[in-house]
């Protein structure tokens, strides 16, 4: 659990983070979203003491981090940045092994861990382990950057626009991977982005920042349904709100018995997917199947439309 209490940061006279308080439960994925220059990166960097706060404090699992030497604190916290920051003179394997090395793990354990992580990120160890970063594609570099951040199995992972440089398809896959890894490992993640789609798609909690202030910190549902200020509403894009709301709702509760023509949707899809599918193919209902391909029933266009309305 991370408790941020009345945290402020001034650079000279300018206030960059203004009295921010928020609590991130253990195992949650919190997304900080906001316009450029709103102080997201600064807030994130105060959590691993790359920036020292001007006032306020941060507790991690109840411990005030200002009492922990910065380099020791950072070895407990994974940190992945846009542009990955891989060490160009070190191989993929050596890059991933950075923190385990600093922590003094023995060679066999480090080697096994590197293999495990390459596997997790679908990079063939025999092929990639001894390559230099310059010999990887941008997406591969990004994955190695995240693998390095996860190497010492940190309980907390900080990510600053980790998917910013990726193309939409790779980005969607990277987001999916992150979700799965987080659920599998129970890692607490704080992720910075200025992409509201990404925030809603990934976040258990979303923190919206504007001009150094934390405007709203809530679940994606609450943010979509009840934006705290006009700015939050604008950030959501007023025309897209019904679709964002639908994208937050899984199909399962809305499946009803019955037949429907055409291709089936996977049960893990969202109501938004159902709406799009129904509209695009001109169907009043679409069938839903489970992972094994068994048909579970159908979801109707009418249901999707009903659920897109703002809850009263």
């Amino acid at each position: 659990m991370i408790e941020i209490e009345h945290l402020s940061k001034f650079f000279d006279e300018t206030c960059v983070v203004d009295d921010v308080s928020m609590t991130i439960p253990g195992g949650a994925l919190a997304v900080i979203v906001g316009t450029s220059g709103s102080g997201k990166t600064t807030l994130l960097r105060m959590i691993n003491r790359l920036v020292e706060p001007s006032s306020g404090r941060i507790l991690i699992d109840g411990k005030d981090i200002s009492a922990i030497p910065p380099h020791e604190l950072r070895r407990q916290i994974g940190y992945a940045i846009q542009g990955h920051g891989l060490f160009p003179h070190r191989t993929v394997g050596q890059n991933i092994a950075t923190v385990p090395h600093l922590l003094g793990w023995d060679a066999a354990k480090v080697s096994a861990r590197v293999e495990e992580l390459l596997d997790l990120f679908q990079l063939d160890a025999a092929e990639f382990r001894d390559r230099y970063p310059s010999q990887l594609s941008g997406g591969q570099q990004q994955r190695v950057g995240v693998a390095r951040a996860l190497a010492a199995a940190p309980k907390l992972l900080l990510m600053d626009e980790p998917f910013g440089a990726l193309d939409p398809i790779i980005r969607a896959r990277a987001q999916e991977d992150l979700r799965q890894i987080q659920q599998r490992l129970g890692t607490t993640i704080v992720l910075v982005t200025h992409d509201m789609n990404e925030a809603i798609h990934l976040g258990d909690r979303i923190a919206v920042m504007d001009r150094a202030k934390l405007l709203q910190y809530d679940t994606p549902q609450e943010i979509v349904i009840r934006p705290a200020t006009e700015f939050v509403g604008e950030l959501l894009g007023s025309g897209e709100r019904p679709f964002r709301l639908l994208s937050l709702q899984p199909l399962r509760p809305y499946i009803e018995p019955g037949e429907a023509p055409g291709a089936a949707l996977d049960v893990d899809a969202s109501l938004r997917d159902a709406l799009e599918e129904a509209l695009w193919s001109g169907r009043a209902a679409v069938p839903v199947r489970d992972g094994a391909g068994k048909t579970l029933g159908r979801v109707t266009l009418a249901t999707a439309i009903r659920q897109a309305a703002r809850p009263q």
Binding site: L50, P70, R75, I81, G83, G85, L102
Partner: peptide, 13 residues
């Protein structure tokens, strides 16, 4: 590069 410096600090060197 600043990215690399930042990463070096961030990993706890």
């Amino acid at each position: 590069s600043p990215d690399v410096q930042e990463a070096a600090r961030g990993t706890g060197m």
